[in-house]
Every structure is written in structure tokens, then in C-alpha cells.
């Protein structure tokens, strides 16, 4: 399964292993900075390289009896001085991750429905299933805010997840605008049938294609950087 891995995976794994040797204070400081910078400034690969550099600085400082803070000074100032990354690439990455999340959620929800329906050859779909998607996005949005709440500047929180959640909620309310029908006003008309294995296969194919495209993108980024020891 080597084709599923990329340079970013290797770098993240390496960072995780090396970070374990940094003191708790240093680890918290690095996590704090990476989360702050990741909000606006750098794209994923640049962020992983920054983490590697910060871990290196922390390890060296601690070896000589100092702390990371004494080497870099004010953390916020340090982060604010970093040059901005490619905004287009950042948007693309964000879109990729939201799509990947949505695909993952779709696959899990569908697998559950397929399982509960006793692996029938033909599956029935209703608009009412949107409620699962709604719950998933609510979870994503809340977790994003919880993660970002540790940042210094709370105004920088990304509201994208909440925006998507609001859109799905609006669609859900629109389609369910009928109190007498538990499936909503379009619930029954939007019910359709398909072969049980088909949606799963399509989801898997999209996921693999996305993964391959992402790997090619990371590979291109890694080519321009010296990231290996």
C-alpha cells in the first residue's frame, strides 16, 4: 500500500516520534504555534517543515539547558513574522479535507444503512437520511472550534464548517417542511433504489482518486524543499 503514502505522512510520522523527546512545555508551545500558523499562513507541507524545525530548535535548546521560548522569544511575534504561504494551495487543501471528511462520513453512514438493511441487493434511499450528514457536520464544526479555541487570536477561527452545517440545515428544513409527513415534503418523491454495492464502490473510487491526486500534489511540493535528513 505504499502508493497510498506521501512525503507529508513520512514527515508527520517523523515529527511525532521526535516530538516525544521534547519537554511537555516545549511540546505545548510547538502545538500552540502550529495551530496558530496553520489557521492562515502556511500550507500543510510547509507546516510540517516548520514543526520539524521547531522540534529541532527545542531539542537543541533543551540539550544545552535552555528552553524553546528562550530561543525564539515571543511565540506570537515569531508566528506573525513568518512569510505567508500560497493562498490558492491553502484553499485547495481545505476543500480537499472537507471533501474527504464528507466522503468518509458518506461511506460510514452508507455502510451502516447497508448493514442494518441486511445487505440487500437493492437499497432504498430517502432524503431523510440527510439527518446523518447534518449530525456529522455538526460534529466537525464543534471539533474545529474546540481545536481552534486554543489559539491566541480567536477571531481567526475558521467558520467554514459552520457555514456548511448551516447550508445542510437549511436544505434539511426545506425538504422536511411538512409536519404530517415524517420523511418531509419531498421525502417520498426523493426516495430511489440502487444496487447495494454500487454507492460504496463509487465512494471508494472517488476516495482513491482523491488520495492519488493529493499524493501527486504533496510530491510536487516536497520536490522543492529539503526536508529529509
Amino acid at each position: 500500500m505504499r502508493w497510498l503514502h506521501n512525503e507529508l505522512d513520512i514527515l508527520c510520522k517523523e515529527n511525532k516520534l521526535r516530538k516525544a523527546y521534547v519537554s511537555q512545555e516545549g511540546q505545548d508551545s510547538i502545538t500552540h504555534m502550529i495551530e496558530y500558523v496553520g489557521e492562515l499562513k502556511l500550507n500543510l507541507f510547509e507546516l510540517a517543515i516548520l514543526e520539524k524545525d521547531l522540534i529541532g530548535m527545542a531539542l537543541e535548546a533543551e540539550h544545552s539547558g535552555q528552553s524553546l521560548a528562550s530561543r525564539i522569544g515571543d511565540e506570537k511575534e515569531f508566528c506573525d513574522n513568518l512569510p505567508h504561504g500560497n493562498r490558492k494551495a491553502q484553499m485547495g487543501e481545505m476543500l480537499f479535507f472537507h471533501l474527504k471528511n464528507a466522503l468518509g462520513a458518506g461511506a460510514i453512514i452508507y455502510a451502516m444503512l447497508y448493514c442494518f438493511n441486511g445487505f440487500q441487493a437493492k437499497m432504498e434511499f430517502s432524503v431523510s437520511y440527510l439527518v446523518f450528514v447534518l449530525c456529522w457536520w455538526l460534529f466537525c464544526s464543534v471539533s474545529e472550534v474546540v481545536i481552534n479555541s486554543v489559539c491566541w487570536d480567536k477571531k481567526r477561527r475558521s467558520h467554514l464548517s459552520f457555514a456548511v452545517f448551516a447550508i445542510i440545515l437549511a436544505i434539511w428544513l426545506l425538504l422536511s417542511w411538512n409536519t404530517s409527513n415524517p420523511y418531509g415534503v419531498l421525502g417520498e418523491t426523493c426516495t430511489f433504489y440502487t444496487y447495494g454495492f454500487l454507492p460504496m464502490t463509487i465512494l471508494a473510487l472517488i476516495w482513491v482518486t482523491m488520495r492519488l491526486l493529493f499524493n501527486a500534489y504533496i510530491h510536487k511540493q516536497a520536490k522543492g524543499c529539503n526536508w529529509q535528513n
Binding site: 521526535r18 523527546y21 524545525d53 522540534i55 529541532g56 530548535m57 531539542l59 537543541e60 540539550h63 544545552s64 528562550s70 530561543r71 525564539i72 522569544g73 515571543d74 511575534e77 515569531f78 513574522n81 513568518l82 512569510p83 529539503n226 526536508w227 529529509q228 535528513n229
Partner: peptide, 30 residues
Amino acid sequence: KEGTLYPLLVRLEKKQMITSTFCPSPLGPS
């Protein structure tokens, strides 16, 4: 401080004025 230099080094590297390589140090971390 090292923290003052780092953003400048990143900027210079992006502009391809300098290049970097990771090498092992006597202290341990590369």
C-alpha cells in the same frame, strides 16, 4: 535570537537566495 532569524531564513530560502540541508549534529538532533 534564533526566532528573529528563522522567518528571515524562510523568506530567503523561498526566494532561493539560500538553500538548506538537514545534517546530524554532535548534540544529537539534526
